[in-house]
Design a protein around this nucleic acid. Structure first.
Lengths: 224, 224
DNA sequence: CGAGCTATTGAAGCAGATCAACGGGGGTGG
DNA sequence: CCACCCCCGTTGATCTGCTTCAATAGCTCG
């Protein structure tokens, strides 16, 4: 166990999952957390392992994914700084629903599920906080289903770029916070399909240069 | 407003979303509910309408769906008796995230979001109940993403049939509780694709006769 | 500077959507 | 009660979009 350093603490406090409680509730949660790290490609847990922890990502990105019987992988979610996962286990099954793998060196705040359960019984503020986590996870996942079912590859990419756009900017530049293959997985695409989607957006003023993506006309992307 | 009749009440009590609270909490929830009905094809609310209610289905099936900009529809979830929806709005956005339409004549227990919020603050048991709802919704939706991304049409149908199978039966017969087009939407398929998926399962001992489906070999389906 | 991984591009194959036509069953009205 | 009609479901044909496979180029990190 590593003691909370200043940066981790600040991310944890800023993480939206903390912002519902009052100071007292925040302090209690903070005190119940254990900071852990995982190096790139580490598998944090596997589907149907005994469930033990709820996580809040402080640093890096985590893939949550499933396997089919041919062992092909499909991401169900990518979690970055401030995101929580395993919220569905607090009052749910006692087994993980997916595999989790660090895409790079990562830092987490980790909470024992059993301890969270008893904190919730005692403090409605904490319950509220965790309900907000659950809501966010659910909305994210619903959006994912809708996007998968309604949008083509270029539309998904355009949509992602629009979502990342700082408010009301007409054009902007973005450095991807992870590898393109991670973005492909997040969007439910093969890496090749992502690459082709980017090229098809070139006409709409999207210029890709390594991890840096330049969006010349946000409004045009929204049409896509 | 319609008074709870015996059947509606029994479904509501049995609905898993009630089973976490003690009798007192259950009574409070029951008292806060309004029973409403919707006739076939009624749209209950539309995406980005002002959010007002949390629902528990007592009877019938509801489609939750989104539209793309060409107005093509895609279901994100089908809710039947005992299922809840709009749990993500209790501590979330103040707008609906999808359209909702009754696929047939339906009955619901409906709760005002604002009232639920204050009940949660007062009673941790109710918070726990609603967290279980949220967890169930989230798991269902995660499964949906994973299935969409990992399985072909026949596999999705096989999986659905296996899920409906009474525990450990070697063979069984099922009457679909809704139209095939609803099942198609639930599985993220066009109706034609569902039809073809059924025929491709004929070799695996699946016989379709109108709404009745006979599954001769559940084990064989699990392989699919 | 080299090794290995990441990304791009091309070609081929496949799964599912879409369009169109037809058959049957259930509901409605006469 | 019967007949009609509409809608649901099926089947066939075509088309699009994505995956898969393969080869190559570029990056990153020892």
């Amino acid at each position: 166990m590593i003691k909370l350093n200043a940066k981790a603490k600040s991310i944890l406090v800023q993480a939206s999952f903390m912002d519902a409680g009052d100071e007292f509730a925040t302090a209690k949660l903070m005190e119940a957390s254990t900071i852990t790290t995982a190096s790139a490609r580490t598998v944090l847990f596997r589907e149907s392992d005994q469930a033990e922890h709820f996580y809040c990502v402080l640093n890096g990105y985590v893939r949550l994914y499933r396997l089919n019987k041919d062992c092909r992988e499909a991401d169900v979610r990518i979690c970055g700084p401030g995101d929580t996962f395993n919220d569905c286990l607090i009052f749910g099954a006692d087994r993980y629903h997916y595999h989790a793998q660090a895409t790079e060196n990562c830092t987490f705040a980790r909470f024992e599920l059993s301890r969270l359960r008893s904190m919730i019984e005692d403090d409605p503020k904490i319950a509220k906080t965790l309900m907000q986590c659950l809501s966010r996870s659910l909305v994210t996942t619903l959006d994912c289903v809708a996007n998968d079912r309604l949008q083509t590859a270029p539309q998904r990419v355009a949509n992602y770029l629009v979502m990342q756009c700082p408010s009301d900017a007409a054009s902007y530049s973005l450095r991807l916070p992870f590898q393109k293959s991670v973005l492909a997985g997040k969007l439910g695409l093969a890496p090749e399909a992502l690459s082709r989607a980017f090229s098809s957006l070139r006409d709409a003023g999207v210029i890709v240069c390594g991890r840096v993506i330049k969006v010349n006309d946000v409004a045009a992307l929204k049409q896509f």
